[in-house]
Simulated scan of single mutants.
Amino acid sequence: MDITPVTRASVSDEVFGQLVTEILAGRLAPGDALPGERELAERFGVNRHAVREALKGVRQAGLVRIAQGGKTRVLDWRVSAGLDALSALAETGAVPPVRMLRDIAEMRRSVAADAARLCAERATPEQRAAVTAAAERYPAATDRPVDATAADLDFWTAVIDGSGNIAYRLGLNTLVAGFGAIGWPVIADLGLFIEYVDRDSHAELARRIAAADPDGAHALATELLGRMVALLAGGVEE
């Protein structure tokens, strides 16, 4: 294990972060036993309470379990972890950034397109108006597509809120965190913001939602969000 002593006053989160990184990066393999609390406290340079709290978080994330005999053993995160591990996985670099971006973009396309369909079916008049207003906030033109990220987040937040699906709303938070963990400059360098500056398509999507056209909203959202997926597809090595 490659552990750095912790010097901050509040340390359990830092210990948690380092342990998660070791597991997701594969330096702690499935089946490996973690050292005991005392040894971890000595190696991190913290007290046992901080280690105990960190291990509690790692267990809750589905990355370790208490095995027979009391040892804490690493699990295979691909089987045991939930979506909340996505941003941590992106930060470790255990999965190549372009592959991670593609996977996030594919999930974003599926979730957001269905949310657009549901929004067209379920949204209240006030929620439809919020989607329309958010679409109007996209910049008409910009030399810096990254400037459209705030408008894009506002738009899709309004759409997903209008869908009435709580799981989709929480999923949006996770996907945004995943993008942020990879880094917006990386995304910009790959030319992935082309979708963000298509003001007309977002206005048309808002119109279809306002007109209660679920099939039309789903089709346009799938095409619009599929642009990022298509750009990423050629750069991923399977």
Rank of each mutant, 00 (worst) to 15 (best):
M1K: 06
I3Y: 06
P5Q: 00
P5E: 00
V6P: 08
R8S: 15
R8Y: 07
R8F: 09
D13S: 11
E14A: 15
G26C: 04
R27W: 08
L28C: 08
A29T: 09
P30I: 03
G31P: 01
G31Q: 03
L34T: 14
G36D: 13
E37D: 08
L40T: 04
E42F: 02
H49N: 10
G57E: 15
R59G: 12
G62E: 05
L63G: 07
V64M: 14
V64S: 03
R65S: 14
I66L: 14
I66C: 03
Q68E: 13
K71W: 10
V79K: 09
V79E: 07
S80H: 09
S80G: 03
A81H: 02
L83R: 13
D84F: 13
A85Q: 08
L86A: 08
A88N: 12
L89I: 07
L89W: 00
A90H: 04
E91C: 12
P97K: 07
M100W: 04
M100G: 05
R102A: 07
I104G: 05
E106Y: 02
D114H: 13
A115G: 12
A116H: 02
R117G: 07
R117S: 07
C119L: 10
C119G: 09
A120K: 06
A120D: 05
A120F: 03
A120T: 09
R122F: 03
A123L: 03
A123W: 09
E126Y: 03
Q127W: 07
R128M: 07
A130F: 00
V131Q: 14
V131N: 15
T132H: 12
A133E: 15
R137T: 10
Y138G: 09
Y138R: 13
Y138F: 15
V146L: 06
V146N: 00
A150K: 10
D152S: 05
F155C: 09
T157K: 13
A158K: 04
A158Q: 02
V159Q: 02
G162Y: 01
G162I: 00
N165I: 02
R169I: 01
L172R: 12
V176C: 13
G180K: 15
P185C: 10
D189L: 07
E195W: 01
V197Q: 07
D198L: 08
S201W: 04
E204T: 09
E204L: 11
A206W: 05
R207Q: 14
I209T: 07
A212E: 10
P214H: 07
A217L: 03
T222M: 10
G226I: 00
A233N: 08
G235K: 11
